[in-house]
Simulated scan of single mutants.
Amino acid sequence: MDAKRLEAALAEEFGGTDAEQRVVARQARDLADSGKPKRDRGHALTVPDVLRHLSDAPDDASLPERWNWWMGALDTAYGGYAPFTVRVVEDDGTAGVNR
């Protein structure tokens, strides 16, 4: 997972602040590095995959809300995705996470 490429794609597709884009890209990279998507869904996490799934979230959702919406769906389906949710976005782009 190329976090910089994902950040740029998130900005173009969903907007949000730089910090929101960085934190969602970081969570996506951490999720991809965990190998969990490949084990659960049969393929590695890709930038197009993230964009497609975040597009399914409610239209009025912020970028972190879209991410958390998708993590909630994955957690319901497979379990173990709650640690990858975003709780707080700090101005420096870090996240409060459950790990």
Rank of each mutant, 00 (worst) to 15 (best):
L54M: 15
Y81C: 03
R26I: 01
G42N: 13
A19C: 10
M71S: 05
D75V: 01
D33E: 13
R26C: 04
N68D: 10
R5C: 00
T76S: 15
G42T: 04
R26V: 03
V50F: 01
G96V: 15
L51S: 12
S62I: 09
T85S: 03
G72E: 14
E20G: 08
P48W: 04
A82E: 14
E65S: 12
E90N: 15
D91V: 08
W67P: 02
D18Y: 00
S62N: 05
G72I: 01
P37R: 10
D92N: 14
Y81T: 01
M71I: 13
R39D: 07
H43L: 09
P48C: 06
A11W: 00
A73G: 08
R29I: 01
S55G: 15
D30N: 10
D56K: 15
R29P: 02
D40L: 02
V47S: 04
A77S: 11
A32P: 10
P37F: 06
D40C: 03
A73E: 14
K36N: 01
D75Y: 02
S55Q: 15
V50N: 05
P37Y: 08
H43M: 12
D92H: 07
R52W: 03
L45S: 06
G35H: 10
D30A: 11
K36A: 04
L63C: 09
V47M: 05
A61E: 08
M1T: 06
P48E: 04
T46W: 02
R41E: 08
L10S: 11
P83S: 08
G35E: 10
G15N: 13
A19K: 04
L10W: 07
V97L: 04
L31N: 05
